[in-house]
Design a protein around this nucleic acid. Structure first.
Length: 898
RNA sequence: GGGCGCUUAGCUCAGCGGUAGAGCGCCUCGUUUACACCGAGGAUGCCGGGGGUUCGAAUCCCUCAGCGCCCACCA
């Protein structure tokens, strides 16, 4: 017997272990089945599961289980990402707590420590994925720093380098001062900062007392100014172009150049040019061949090395001794000091408060410093072209489609991708330098040595580039590196391209775009056919979850409290296309009720001896109730299947819910009770047969999203051996002869019972009062139906009998209009006649209004001539029925008129 | 500045040319032998505003407003 209450904790771990042990999650390349592959977005190896993962995993697991049941050879590729900066950050923090610093430890010892941390915490996320029921093929688990994946990384790097698509360049990068590494444009986020706009006076050379005023938010960079630009059409400064200024503090002589970059509307109209510390200025400097001295070091401190030679004493403007004191000062300290000095020199014209956007490192949270450094770059623009084309031609499609615009906008204006990072944790760049700086990009140290020998004509000591690659470089290879590339494995041939990639919109650029670029370049085909983009999980008020707001929900805690199935169902049901998911506890709680409902429905079946019957032929039943529910299950199967095929998990969840609760539980099981409790016979057998058939269909339909409770019930009922639902074929509609008649019959019954219930509830008849139903104006068919269904009607409508009204209307009736018939409930002494009159009058008014509305429409000749014929006919039919209903209600009112 | 999305019942959302829907919440009634994590019933809507197209608009177009997000932007 099933327990009275369900306890997910009692069966979830057991079922998962059973599935995994039996190889149910394992892809089967040897099978003849059509493959279906999903590559998991690899979570950070040292991370733990958050609600975003939970949504991502629920969607993917639902899809993979669905396809597996459809008979596809399903591969859901698991694995984790080494997550360069994030992981290094965590370990450095741990070290700091022990008073250690990675630089003191040295690279090797530090990396050893990171691997140790990975070994300790690396299992957390995979355990948590299991807890969510994720049917990942663990036998193929990969890590981005596995030997195999590292080989792929080096292969890609070397190949792209030989093709000229990876190169070294010295240009401005986004420098993260805290982590002391370059980061890509995508890792920079701008934040609004309240600061000041300083208007500074730069003395014009040879014209004492004349100044050109520049406005800046970053006075500390003025040490590196090599020009001031004005707009060529700006009359205010026309005579100054070509002249020179004496740069305060350093005393350097700098030109006034005309450049369209200068915006006459902004600041003072003249802009200082600091090429080594500003992206725009860098461009201006290139156009005017200006020098670009660096004045801030890797830690964001003033460095005078490159301007030492420029320092000149200029009375009242620059004092080298003071300036030399700035060396080593932090950029913000230097700013204060400089302003104080400029004020002393009366070179500050004005200071205005100014709010502006300042780029910050997304991980470090500190302002980014543009810095001129040598880095490795990938030629993203070239790689992007085929990726753009693949989406344009539909070889890869985004769902929802509008995300393609986002993808295009970014890809069409893509900048060189800075792929080197000055970190230790990651794939070290396979480049070796000779003593003269000549470098060799090779797969291995041996190959590099050989290349050096060939180059120098002798063995030469080489130094490996200390930098590592951007984490997204290796994640970009995920769809094929996990399948064994560069080896030509059978898996690679079979599972690439994957069918669908499921992820959030926040990593379209970081990851999806990179996989597209690298996948097409190295595999010659797109990495996946479909990209299913889902929204963000927010809290119930629509706020983004964050630790600082304290509104973070822990998916595992929710799973513990309400069961994994309830959490998964909730996430799926809110995962509508292009919408964020607002998750609240109560929502999970109320979906737990659905899981419980299913459990109880199964219990009811069990108690009534409903058991799996392999010999049952759903197409051979004659009982209308059986035909009707089997037909209903067919419709649910069709709905669920098409919803899943089109990534509409919300529709899938809704279809399941509606059919299971509304169709199967509320109506079928209730209507089946008389037969089930009645004598044995053909009807009872058929109803039981239909019940087991439909319950089995429901369990299969619900399994992708609610794997645990469905498997538990499937097993306990004996639909199949322990743990077998996961590989049971997905249901398909079955032929139901006479389905249409059965539908007409049962639809009548449902509305008949509903109408009686409405009347009883409205006039407050307690359920304990049972009354006969006297029908007036009923067709022979209606009377026959009422006779056939008398037991359910007695039960559900609290009636004693149904018979035609013979002659006079009894005193004190309540009346209901059902189709062509009017049903009277003799309730003398119970019914409040005045209330009943009011109720009927209200219904009558409603019917009349409806009829009038339709009549007006039909009176419009434009409508009848221009609208589609079937629409007009349908409208006429609606008018007839509304008028008839109004007439019957009018008659009912007349019958009880005072 | 450029772009995208959203605005429908108290809440969360579906519907996207032809009768305004669901779930939750709320109110009333109820313990009828699966389930009170339940059952039955009910109320609640100028479908953001304005204009247009159409026989017909929540649905298509234009426009305005509000909210959210992405990209760009250190004068």
């Amino acid at each position: 017997m099933l327990d009275k209450t369900l306890s997910p904790a009692g069966y979830e771990p057991r079922l998962y272990e059973g599935w995994e042990a039996s190889g149910a999650f394992t892809a089967n390349p040897a099978s003849g089945a059509q493959p279906f592959a999903i590559m998991i977005p690899p979570p950070n190896v040292t991370g733990s599961l958050h609600v975003g993962h939970a949504l991502d995993v629920t969607i993917q697991d639902t899809l993979i289980r669905f396809r597996r049941m459809q008979g596809r050879d399903a591969l859901w590729q698991p694995g984790t990402d080494h997550a360069g900066i994030a992981t290094q950050m965590v370990v450095e923090r741990l070290l700091a707590a022990e008073g250690l610093d990675r630089r003191q430890m040295g690279r090797e010892a530090f990396l050893e420590r990171v691997w140790k941390w990975k070994a300790e915490s690396g299992g957390t996320i995979t355990r948590q994925l299991r807890r969510m029921g994720a049917s990942l093929d663990w036998s193929r688990e990969r890590f981005t720093m596995d030997e195999g994946l590292s080989i792929a990384v080096r292969e890609v790097f070397v190949t792209l380098h030989r093709q000229g698509l990876i190169y070294r360049d010295r240009r401005l990068v986004n420098w993260d001062v805290k982590f002391q590494t370059a980061i890509s444009d995508l890792e920079v986020e701008s934040r609004e900062v309240k600061g000041s706009l300083w208007h500074l006076r730069y003395p014009v050379e040879g014209e004492p007392g004349r100044f050109l005023v520049v406005a800046t938010t970053r006075p500390e960079t003025m040490l590196g100014d090599t020009a001031v630009a004005v707009h060529p059409d700006d009359d205010r400064f026309r005579d100054l172009v070509g002249k020179f200024l004496i740069l305060p503090i350093t005393g350097r002589r700098i030109p006034i150049v005309a450049d369209v970059y200068s915006d006459p509307e902004k600041g003072s109209g003249a802009v200082k040019i600091t090429p080594a510390h500003d992206f725009n200025d860098f461009e201006v400097a290139r156009r005017h061949s200006l020098p670009a001295p660096t004045v801030l070091d890797a830690e964001g401190r003033v460095s005078l090395a490159e301007i030492e030679a420029d320092l000149r004493a200029v009375p009242g403007v620059a004092d080298p001794a003071w300036t030399r004191d700035l060396a080593g000062k932090d950029r913000f300290e230097a700013r204060k000091a400089l302003i104080a000095e400029l004020e002393r020199l009366e070179l500050v014209e004005a200071i205005e408060p100014h709010t502006h956007a300042v780029p910050h490192g997304d991980r470090s949270g500190v302002p980014i410093e543009p810095r001129l450094t040598w880095q490795w770059y990938a030629d993203a623009a070239t790689l992007a072209k085929p990726a753009i084309e693949a989406v344009e031609t539909g070889r890869t499609q985004f769902v929802p489609k509008q995300w393609e615009n986002t993808f295009f906008a970014w890809m069409r204006d893509i900048q060189p991708w800075c792929i080197s990072r000055q970190l230790w944790w990651g794939h070290q760049i396979p480049a070796w330098y000779g003593p003269d700086g000549h470098f060799f990009v090779e797969r291995t140290e041996e190959e590099a040595a050989a290349a050096a020998r060939a180059h120098y004509g002798q063995d030469m000591a080489l130094t490996r580039d200390p930098d590592v690659l951007d984490t997204w470089f290796s994640s970009g290879l995920w769809p094929f590196s996990t399948l064994g590339w560069p080896e030509k494995t059978p898996e690679l041939a079979r599972y690439y391209p994957g069918d669908v990639l499921v992820t959030g919109f926040d990593i379209i650029f970081f990851w999806v775009a990179r996989m597209m670029m690298l996948g097409i370049h190295f595999m010659g085909d797109v990495p996946f056919r479909t990209v299913n983009i889902h929204g963000l999980v927010r809290d119930e008020r629509g706020q983004k979850m964050s630790k600082s707001k304290g509104n973070v929900m822990d998916p595992l805690e929710l799973a513990d409290a309400y069961g994994t199935d309830a959490l998964r169902f909730t996430l799926a049901s809110f995962a509508g296309p292009g919408r964020d998911v607002r998750l609240g506890r109560q929502k999970v709680e109320s979906n737990r009720a659905f899981v419980t409902k299913l459990w109880n429905a199964a219990r009811f079946c069990e108690m009534n001896g409903i058991a799996p019957d392999a010999g049952f032929d759903p197409s051979a039943v004659a009982t209308p109730l059986a035909r009707w529910i089997i037909d209903g299950a067919n419709a649910a199967v069709a709905e669920a299947t098409s919803a899943l095929e089109s990534y509409r998990l919300d529709d899938y969840a809704a279809a399941l819910y509606r059919f299971t609760w509304g169709g199967f539980c509320d109506w079928f099981l209730e209507l089946a009770k008389p037969a089930l409790m009645g004598p044995d016979g053909a009807e009872k057998d058929e109803v039981k047969g239909a019940a087991q058939h439909v319950l089995g269909a429901i369990l299969r339909l619900a399994h992708p999203v609610m794997p645990y409770v469905t498997e538990e019930l499937w097993d306990r009922f004996g639909y199949g051996p322990e743990g077998s639902l996961i590989r049971t074929p997905w249901p398909t509609p079955v032929a139901v002869p006479g389905a249409e008649e059965a539908r007409a019959e049962l639809d009548w019954l449902v509305s008949f019972i509903t109408e009686i219930r409405v009347v009883r509830a409205e006039v407050n008849v307690p359920p304990s009062v049972t009354v006969p139903l006297l029908v007036q104006g009923a067709s022979a068919e209606t009377l026959a139906r009422a006779a056939r269904w008398i037991e359910p009607i007695r039960r559900l409508a609290r009636a004693t009998e149904v018979r035609p009204l013979d002659g006079k209307v009894p005193e004190g009736v309540a009346q209901a209009v059902v189709g062509e018939a009017t049903v009277m409930l003799p309730l003398a002494g119970v019914v409040d006649l005045a209330a009943e009159r009011t109720r009927l009058a209200k219904d009558h008014a409603k019917a009349e209004a409806e009829a009038r509305k339709i009549a007006t429409k039909l009176a419009n000749p434009d409508f009848t001539t221009r609208a589609k014929e079937e629409v007009v006919e349908e409208t006429r039919e609606r008018l007839r029925s509304a008028e008839a209903e109004a007439a019957r209600l009018a008659a009912a009112i007349a019958r009880i008129a005072a």
